Computed example of a mutant assay.
Amino acid sequence: MGLKLAAVTVDCAEPRSLARWWADALGGEIVADYEVYVAVAGAGGVLSFQKVPAPTPGKNRIHVDFGAADRTAEVARLIALGAVEVGTHTFGDLTWTVLADPDGNRFCVSEESSGG
């Protein structure tokens, strides 16, 4: 195949501050900083943040899912960093928690053994 995923990019108002938050959350590092576009490598991939003049109206149509060996502990750590818990859901044997980063972008954390 000719395509390789390079990054998942999030539109935001303040790329540097949001990238710093995600670098802390992922235990990663900022690998590119062009002021209007900042990329963070961590957790096996790259999240990037680009400045846009206005937030996307309505619900995000894409979000990132993460797995953790201890979902409860990881959710508590992310909340301590400034994430907001939106809800916890169960479907069959899969339980996940939906969180929002400081800009309100939603992401999920599930138990790694549940298929993430």
Rank of each mutant, 00 (worst) to 15 (best):
M1I: 00
M1Q: 01
K4D: 06
K4L: 13
L5I: 15
A7N: 13
C12D: 13
P15T: 05
S17P: 04
L18G: 13
A19V: 03
D24L: 14
A25L: 05
L26S: 07
G27R: 11
G27I: 12
G28I: 01
I30W: 03
A32R: 11
Y34D: 15
Y37V: 12
V38A: 10
V40D: 09
V40N: 05
A41C: 05
A41H: 09
G42S: 12
A43D: 03
A43F: 03
V46N: 05
K51Q: 12
P53V: 03
P53M: 06
A54S: 14
P55G: 08
P57G: 10
G58D: 12
K59D: 04
N60D: 07
I62N: 09
V64K: 10
F66A: 02
G67K: 06
A69I: 08
T72V: 13
T72Q: 14
E74N: 10
V75E: 01
V75Y: 03
V75C: 14
A83N: 04
V86W: 11
G87N: 08
T88E: 14
G92C: 05
D93W: 01
L94P: 00
T95F: 07
W96F: 15
D103P: 04
G104P: 02
G104T: 04
R106T: 14
C108H: 01
S110Y: 02
S114F: 09
S114L: 09
